[in-house]
């Protein structure tokens, strides 16, 4: 692509970069095991401190378990696809 193409598409490339970064961050937050485990600890603490009721704690914990299982499944699929 020539200089003109770069100039014309420049703003969109920048925007695409931002969107991609946000997407990566969201994916990391959602499916990164370490990030999920930190959220478990933080949630447990909120419950222990009495900042959230038990039913809300259990609801949020179930969501985190679901995400942890999804992360494991995605990781196993990636390992299977990418070889050892």
């Amino acid at each position: 692509m020539g200089i003109l193409g770069n100039v014309l598409l420049g703003p969109f490339k920048g925007l695409w970069f931002v969107i991609r970064e946000i997407h990566n961050q969201v994916q990391k937050e959602l499916y990164d095991e370490e990030a999920i485990q930190k959220q478990f600890v933080a949630l447990q603490l909120e419950y222990e401190l009495g900042n959230i009721p038990e039913d809300e704690f259990l609801r949020q914990e179930a969501v985190l378990f679901e995400r942890l299982n999804q992360a494991r499944t995605a990781c196993a699929a990636a390992n299977a696809g990418g070889g050892e």
Binding site: L58, E61, A62, F65, L68, N69, R72, A76
Partner: peptide
């Protein structure tokens, strides 16, 4: 294999 789901 793949059986163990993480739960409370």
């Amino acid at each position: 294999d793949g059986e163990h789901m993480l739960s409370r």
